[in-house]
Write a protein that binds this DNA or RNA. Structure first.
Lengths: 249, 249
DNA sequence: GAAATAGTGTCTTTGAGACAGTATAAG
DNA sequence: CTTATACTGTCTCAAAGACACTATTTC
């Protein structure tokens, strides 16, 4: 990182002071409601000079240099402001930046994605947050009408989520503790969009040893099931991959 | 993305115009030389007001709003300026931003990582690029003396690379075409830092069908071997994961 | 011929997928 | 007892790991 333009020095510095791109943070917040993967969207205001008025967008906005110590702090703040959730599963997704994605200026956004249990949320309506709501991911992706490049970003987030769910315990972060294995299995099935074999699922989950037993839970069904808590609520378990030496387990 | 501060409107807008964080791009460029994974570093200049003078750093710098259409374009430009390579394998790694990582201001950097064959490179010395050189990754990580938070970034890049190598064809991008399977195997072994079984390796590579035969190549050994080219030089092949239905293959 | 590396065959083990079967609750 | 769901057992098959073996070149 030279932090120096290849063009002339003094002019470059002056430009830098006054024409930095916008720096924003957006958060793709997922949950599961009614057996469907949902994403949180915010409706944009219709003021003068506001881009994409009335359109739905991912929650996010400018980094507040005075408030946010890091980009991740900024993402956490935005998530908390909209949902009231304090310790979500949060993972960086990537960044998108170009001259055209924001009609006002060259802008770059840093994007996180989060998984939260629906029960933990209290949507922050009114006040500054014009309108906030959950939307079924599949229908949003089809419609393709979000503000900025948020359709692209949402698409990337869903792909990342679906692919990681194949080999990690991510869906566990969509549940409140304690939860049962059948409940967890349903989260996998909802996210993946296909049924999962019960037997294989159970052996796999228990083999990964990221679950701690927590008594019996009278679920919503006839027979109660064993309840579980996560050993670590920050990091997901990763199921064995290929190409690893057998001794490495 | 509301793009509006929660604080007062007019003042917020004015602040936004004049106190955006720095937006930079850095590139972690990997290659293999002498059977070791190497990373390209640039020595920082010792001018007045220059942070970390004389220290080694990842190549990168400010986004040039007038030149770069997108962040990725910016990354490609920086990579080309230092190496002369036009079409590397390039993948976004993530972004790092905080109030403290740059002593001059709140700054956020977008990081890519690249894989290139050592033979393709012509290091751009002199002129503006003070000093550019390859370093063995392992020793750089041990020393822990890079500028900014580049030690952290390099660490993350190496972890990402090593983990993806377990289930993708990434190491193929470290070779010039045509290459042989034994050469490719050596790339895997260098990156992973452990030996790989020949037989399993071959069946796996050929099963993934991302290679096209390209005649015989008199390698550096006694017996010539079959040469291969990549079917797609942009995207790596992904070897089968777990949790997929058998019919899905 | 010897040496060196390219490439193949085979045995074992693991674990996923499929599916049938058993256990325990509510009504 | 029936029904519904939690949980377990078993068979098959694919693929990885380990390792011995054959093939083709240079010297």
């Amino acid at each position: 990182m030279t932090y120096t333009k290849s063009t002339s020095g003094k002019r470059a510095r002056k430009e830098r002071e006054f024409s930095q791109p916008y720096t924003t943070v957006d958060v793709v917040i997922f949950t599961v409601i009614d057996n469907a993967l949902q994403v949180l969207l915010v409706q944009r205001r219709a003021g003068a000079g506001e881009p994409f008025p009335g359109r739905w967008a991912l929650p996010g906005g400018f980094v507040d240099v005075a408030v946010d110590a890091t980009l991740e702090d900024c993402a956490r703040r935005k998530l908390f402001e909209k949902t009231g959730v304090k310790s979500p599963y949060l993972e960086q997704l990537g960044s998108w930046g170009s001259a055209t994605r924001d009609p006002r200026a060259w802008s770059a956004t840093h994007v996180w994605f989060a998984l939260i249990p629906a029960q933990d949320v209290t949507l922050a309506k009114g006040a500054n947050a014009a309108e906030v709501a959950w939307f079924a991911v599949d229908s949003v992706i089809q419609k393709d009408g979000l503000a900025f490049d948020h359709d692209t970003i949402l698409q990337a987030a869903v792909e990342r989520l679906r692919s990681k769910v194949e080999y990690t315990s991510l869906p566990a972060f969509l549940l409140t503790e304690p939860f049962t294995l059948p409940q967890l299995q349903r989260m996998y099935e909802v996210v993946l969009g296909r049924p999962v074999d019960k037997s294989g699922f159970r052996t796999r989950m228990l083999a990964a040893s990221f679950l701690k037993e927590a008594g019996y839970v009278a679920g919503e069904s006839n027979r109660p099931a064993v309840g579980y808590r996560l050993a670590d609520r920050q990091t997901p378990a990763v199921f064995p991959r290929t190409f690893s030496p057998r001794s490495g387990q």
